[in-house]
Design a protein around this nucleic acid. Sequence first.
RNA 1: GGUGCGGUGGCGAAGAGGCUAACGCUGCGGACUGCAAAUCCGCCAUCCGUCGGUUCAAAUCCGACCCGCACCUCCA
Length: 483
Amino acid sequence: MKDSKLKVYNTLTGEKEIFKPLCEGKVGIYVCGPTTYNFIHLGNARPIVVFDTIRRYLEYRGYEVKYIQNFTDVDDKIINRAKAENLPAHELAQTYIDEYFKDADALNVKRADVHPKVSEHMGEIIEFVKGLVEKGFAYTVDGDVYFAVKRFKDYGKLSKRNIEELQAGARVEADERKEHPGDFALWKKAKPGEPQWDSPWGKGRPGWHIECSAMSGKYLGCSFDMHGGGFDLIFPHHENEIAQSEALNGEQMAKYWVHNGFITVKQEKMSKSLGNFFLLRDIFKKFSPDVVRFYLLSTHYRSPLDFDDEKLEIAQKGLARLRTAYRLLKEKANESGLVKAFDGEKEIKEFEEGVAEHRRRFNEAMDDDFNTALAIAELFDLARLINNFTAGGVAQNAQGVISKAGKAYHDLAGVLGIRLEQENADSSSELTEALIRLLLDTRLVAKKKKDYQIADEIRSGLQELGIIIEDTPQSTRWRRGEN
RNA sequence: GGUGCGGUGGCGAAGAGGCUAACGCUGCGGACUGCAAAUCCGCCAUCCGUCGGUUCAAAUCCGACCCGCACCUCCA
């Protein structure tokens, strides 16, 4: 297998570039995580799943990945919501951090190496702001500290705008105290009743952007490999992070800036302000987290992805198809010699080569800017190949290749975080399984007597209970319905 | 107004100079089945927003235009 080159689209340069980590074999990734004032919605889930998949792929390719995702737990929205609910802000934030993990775990998202919180990094943040003031990139006005965009010559390089344009298009009224309308707060003076911390400029709290600069620096260093988030973070959030970090450290903050596209609803961005958002846990009532993850990866991460139930139903069917192939393979791997005396050498060889070919193409797809849509297509092809091979049963002499193929198939799906083993949704006790078996045996007797009415009644009765049965020449197998 | 992204079969979605335009869903035909389910096989875009241009060769490059979306303000 020749080692192809991984290419990544870099927002900074606007091009797909060969991925070359700063330090060979190691990758540092920082992803902007949620502001924890509510359950996460589908739009929040996309970057979480996308970057988790990127991480998994890099690990699969042998990189040692250090993955950081923050929680913004000090913020206006949290404060407002806490007030409304009459709760301490930190308590509210912690609640939704806990809830975040429930959703993310369900989506099969691996935990980051560190999930830093703003509230636990005040020291680093204050030091950072102090540094910027000392270097002359920031100024103080009445307890607030602002970053002066005009003093940072590269300002606008990520979002491709210049400072004059910003001024022209500004829709917010200029704050008279700022040197330039584009200047943003590094530190905000405390208002009564709000969470606050001591600082050289008096009591206050950090601005939004500074946390990511301070925390990424702490865990990944001044310069790291990849920084990710949604498209809407390019400006102003990431632009400002770059300004802060590069002004202070004098070196490039992150080498690759990676941004995912939006989830849309009827072609419009899903967002809180439009009110057209869907909470993940509401979607989970109808579709399993695995289906949601599969759906999110079925389109390239930079393209917009429209949401509606029908799309999820299609994803559900697709995932079921992949799982069926795996299930059948497992089954055949245990039915050795049942149907066939032996498989032909030629067929076995072709099958093995086919599997290797699909793995190669899967890698190629992922190497091309993490093209999960294409990678999934390879999974479908692999499923068909497996179904074909196992169709007539698998003989003893092919058991080895079939279990190897099963492992390869399972591994590739795992790179995308897709679980081929359907978890037993609810506890199916030994007793219920035995009872189902008993019914199926009874049905077989009925079938032998050609009493199809009884046989069909048992089948439809089980189906209503969510049990789907499939007759094979040898016996009858059963499974739980799709989900 | 500025900046960026996109328009591919009934639907979704890959492909970015040259093999029959992947893959999934749907539909149709067939195999298997008592009937199903699952699976397999076959068929379904002379064509890739429109009009020009470059080229031996273009969904793929260039130009103009039309349409949609996003960012420029908290937002993943």
